[in-house]
């Protein structure tokens, strides 16, 4: 088994993850609302989320933005020789505009998402990445969203034997 299976979450963590990847309450005491739903205290909810954050399971509690409405954004890829991949990935990582950056199995093996306040800023960022890495990005902006990421249900049962 992989090391990830050592992460063993309590019932409250599991419920929070599967119930609130979307629709988190926007009201004065949101954690109290969650606590009432799950029959625990407001402080327990907050501590649970803090713990998830410390475990680096919770990236953040907040909005996922519509890329088109929030600014300019694109998926891009570089085709990098395997032995240079880590080095080039670190150069790309240094750009504040880059948020996701993954190695994937293809000739185009470094895939990243860049965001900026406007199209001009995005173009400049991609030009800089080209110049600093020596590789020309394949630029693949979203043209139409058919289905957007709204979070998905985590199956906690198959490696801990504990169901919700």
């Amino acid at each position: 088994m992989m090391s990830y299976s050592s992460v063993n979450l309590d019932g409250l963590s599991q419920k929070l993850i599967n119930a609130y990847q979307k629709g988190f309450p926007v009201c004065s005491r949101p954690f109290l609302q969650l606590a009432e739903r799950f029959n625990c205290s407001e402080q327990e909810v907050i501590e649970c989320l803090e713990q998830l954050q410390q475990q680096k399971i919770l990236s953040r509690l907040g909005p996922v933005l519509d890329h088109k409405k929030a600014g300019a954004s694109t998926l891009a890829a570089l085709a990098v020789p395997a032995e240079q991949l880590d080095e080039i990935a670190e150069i790309v990582n240094k750009f504040e505009q880059v948020n996701h950056n993954y190695a994937r199995e293809h000739d185009y093996n470094l895939w990243f998402v860049a965001t900026a306040a406007d199209a001009e800023g995005l173009k400049q960022c991609l030009t800089n990445i080209h110049q600093q890495t020596g590789f020309e990005p394949l630029v693949l902006p979203m043209e139409k969203a058919y289905h957007i990421d709204l979070g998905f249900e985590i199956n906690f049962s198959d490696h801990h034997g504990e169901k919700l």
């Binding site: 990847q21 979307k22 629709g23 988190f24 399971i57 909005p63 933005l65 519509d66």
Partner: peptide, 8 residues
């Protein structure tokens, strides 16, 4: 904002 909640 297209979704608002826990980002995992």
């Amino acid at each position: 904002i297209r979704r608002f909640g826990l980002v995992i």
